[in-house]
């Protein structure tokens, strides 16, 4: 079967999916959508730009908190809150990126981590705005979107559009430049391209999309917590991307789906989900660094 028809079938299946699901599983399906988007946005940095961010949760959190604050305190509709969330996460990414992108590699990892923890502290301490430790709860969309199935379709449309945009970008001249500078930034400089501005733009784009994912999730889960900005939260997109395979566009989506399902199943049995996730990371890193998509590709190409 060719790619367009496969894509069409996948989209139709995604549309039809919640018709056979209970509300609980519809929420899980929304979670898969959200984290697929989140993981692909992260992979713009890691897989395409070669920038390992340990603070991507900052933008997911900023998106979520912006929507939560505007809806809860301002009583604003989603039509205002969502664009505001995009703007806020873009601005945050521009500021953090300005400092972090100066030095790619180890500094970048540390700085993104440190800045995210700064935002975590703000979320904890600015109780008037963020509710501190208790977060902001009881969020709800107005009208038809308050029904899980409609919210699922709403989320699906946003996610498909955002994924299509990112797919377009990674295959554009900009995306090719990004992949070139992943391996050899100095050579890119010497063909007349300003490496830093391209890295910064990618960082802002990835942060904005992560903020969008956080905004969708704030409404579907009904609340936001400071934990969204905690350091553990930044491991989530990394694990998803590596689990699914960060050398492909689709890999992080697969990783997100597997991760979310694993979490649902495992955290039903034990509160030590982080411990299990840690072990999964160790196994991944030591045994299958190419992730699920890398493995399936190798099997398909004949086992070597």
């Amino acid at each position: 079967m060719n790619r367009p028809s496969l894509l069409a079938i996948a989209i139709l299946a995604a549309i039809a999916l919640p018709l056979g699901l209970t509300d609980f599983w519809t929420f899980i399906a929304i979670e898969v959508l959200v984290f697929a988007l989140y993981a692909v946005s992260f992979n713009l940095l890691l897989g395409y730009g070669g920038m390992l961010s340990f603070g991507h949760a900052a933008f997911f959190g900023v998106g979520g908190y912006t929507v939560a604050i505007l809806v809860k305190h301002g009583g604003l509709p989603l039509a205002v809150a969502f664009p505001a969330a995009l703007a806020m996460s873009a601005i945050t990414a521009a500021i953090i990126g300005f400092f972090s992108v100066r030095r790619i590699g180890i500094y970048f990892a540390m700085l993104t981590f440190a800045f995210q923890m700064l935002l975590y502290t703000v979320a904890l301490k600015a109780t008037g705005l963020t509710g501190g430790d208790d977060g902001i709860t009881g969020l709800k969309a107005a009208g038809a979107l308050s029904k899980p199935i409609y919210y699922y379709w709403f989320a699906l449309i946003i996610v498909i559009v955002a994924l299509a945009l990112m797919h377009r970008i990674v295959h554009s001249p900009f995306g090719m430049t990004l992949q070139a500078l992943r391996g050899n930034p100095r050579r890119v400089e010497y063909v007349g391209i300003n490496v830093r501005t391209h890295q910064l733009a990618t960082f802002v784009l990835a942060g904005t999309i992560a903020g969008l994912a956080g905004a969708i999730f704030a409404i579907s889960s009904g609340n936001v917590f400071p934990g969204w900005l905690n350091w553990t939260a930044s491991a989530t997109p990394i694990v998803m991307a590596v689990l699914g395979g960060f050398r492909t566009f689709i890999g992080p989506m697969v990783g997100a789906a597997v991760y979310v399902m694993l979490e649902v199943v495992i955290s039903g049995h034990t509160e030590y989900w982080p411990l299990i996730m840690g072990v999964i990371i160790v196994v991944l890193v030591l045994m299958m660094p190419e992730g699920i998509m890398g493995m399936t590709r190798r099997i398909r190409d004949g086992k070597r």
Partner: peptide, 29 residues
């Protein structure tokens, strides 16, 4: 060089730089 890219892509990146099109997201690279 760009070791992970194809030979053709190596030159396309260089031409992108030459034409100042590294920012465009339209044509398929």
């Amino acid at each position: 060089i760009f070791r992970e890219l194809t030979v053709r892509e190596n030159l396309q990146v260089a031409l992108t730089g030459r034409e100042r099109r590294s920012w465009s997201i339209w044509p398929k690279a």
